[in-house]
Design a protein around this nucleic acid. Structure first.
Lengths: 252, 252
DNA sequence: CGACGAAGCGAGCGATCGCTCGTATCTTGA
DNA sequence: TCAAGATACGAGCGATCGCTCGCTTCGTCG
């Protein structure tokens, strides 16, 4: 009942006894730039406390984040304590607090990764969407494919994250504001392309963005068994295209 | 710092001292059937502990729910304790636990009301949607209007509720299952109407339902200042209609 | 009026939470 | 080789949480 929660089989051996400490390959540190973290100014409350410099520490941070993914998505954010996370990561709470000032910061780190993935998916699709030579449909399909990929990476996590964001008392401006930017870009694209129907493009962009997000989530979470992956994608593309496309005027 | 949280000005005088207890109109209890509660079998964990029989008690329950609305939507579910709720309601924790077995039950009661509202909105729109004589567009518009109304009743609450539902460890089948029913109904309607384009109507129904929900939320929450209420509604109707309507074959 | 059930009260229990800090161990570089 | 910083550890603090329970007060009715 007291939730012994043995470290998950896969990650990090459960060296309970203090003696059997970590012995890792001490390969010279690969100075990889912290991947997947968008350049955003985070408030002290949520910013990482200090960056790991040794490989050992990087592993610790990674294990913590993996454990957090696991627990947030299975038990929910509120029901997951920092002690849970640490234990599951095969790490002490103290170590967790070396790198994250508080629980929200752990979620924020996860959120940052997720948003970075979403952002890069969107960014990859802006050029084709801008290009009037590329059919609108193709750009939209590509975007949905990429977003689906992001959500598929860890469906439970992206669900948990997106739900929790709304609950966070402070959603860092930098992380939330990216949406506004993209909606603006989208509005501009809609106004430019000749194959988009006339109308209030700013408004259309707001709706389109919201619907796109929803649809990409549904693509992953709605009974993937009942409908084929591609079938669903086709229908989703259809929905978005029909909304914005200028009707050909001829042909059905 | 310990959050004295005086009872909100509007509701229920703050009779702190035990002496100045409640003096309410003891009018013979209006036996109104608990309004807004769908006939759903709730697990003991979430079911109300006992129903209030006196008016005084009904007031208490009402005050508790109002306070919960207020706190859940402003501080979030996780950050709201039962003591908070009771204090804000001008009631003791003990009284709260007379009617709700635990915190989740309070949320569930709120959820039940919300879903009842959504459900009745949907139900009201099914006949016109079924009727081929009524333009599809009219039925959809009416549905969005009604859903918008529901969310407008208390935007913060419906937001908080819908976010929390996903986090709840046990979403009662009866409360969650209503969606499946409506999607099925929707699929059937799509298959029947001659003005709907051919295709996989079951799949279209899934997407349509998800998009409808999103859109109705956006209608209320997305900067209501930047766009006119009706303008947004028009555009949303457009989005949904274009998705399912059979193109006229002539005319733009 | 008196008695009884319904309703209300709130101190406080046990559990858990987020988080700290003194100490032990590891890694690095000169 | 070894000092010094980086990393890790985990018992446990203070706060808060959900919730109980012994008791008082209110409303009703014979």
């Amino acid at each position: 009942m007291t939730d012994p929660t043995p470290p998950r089989p896969g990650s990090r051996a459960g060296r309970k006894a203090s003696g059997a400490a970590r012995r890792r390959t001490a390969s010279t540190g690969a100075r990889i730039r912290e991947e997947g973290a968008p350049r955003v100014r985070l408030p002290r409350r949520l910013a990482p406390r200090k960056s790991p410099t040794q490989d050992r520490a990087r592993e610790t941070v990674e294990a913590i984040l993996e454990a957090a993914v696991d627990l947030f998505s299975s038990r929910g954010y509120a029901r997951t304590s920092t002690n849970h996370i640490a234990r599951r990561a095969g790490v002490s709470v103290g170590s967790l607090y070396q790198y994250f000032p508080n629980k929200d910061a752990v979620l924020t780190a996860l959120l940052a990764r997720h948003l970075a993935a979403v952002e890069s998916a969107i960014h990859a699709c802006i050029p084709p969407l801008r290009d009037p030579a590329v059919p609108l449909r193709d750009g939209i399909r590509r975007l949905l494919e990429l977003l689906r990929e992001v959500h598929e990476a860890d469906p439970r996590l992206s669900r948990a994250i997106e739900q929790q964001v709304g609950q966070m008392p402070v959603v860092p401006e930098g992380l939330a504001g990216y949406k506004r930017d993209h909606v603006a870009t989208l509005a501009e694209i809609l106004s430019t392309r000749p194959d988009v129907r006339p109308g209030n493009h700013a408004l259309m962009a707001v709706l389109l963005a919201a619907v796109t997000e929803t649809v990409s989530v549904v693509l992953v979470h709605a009974a993937p068994a009942r409908f084929g992956r591609d079938e669903m994608l086709d229908e989703a593309v259809e929905a978005l295209c029909r909304f914005v496309e200028r009707p050909p005027g001829r042909l059905s």
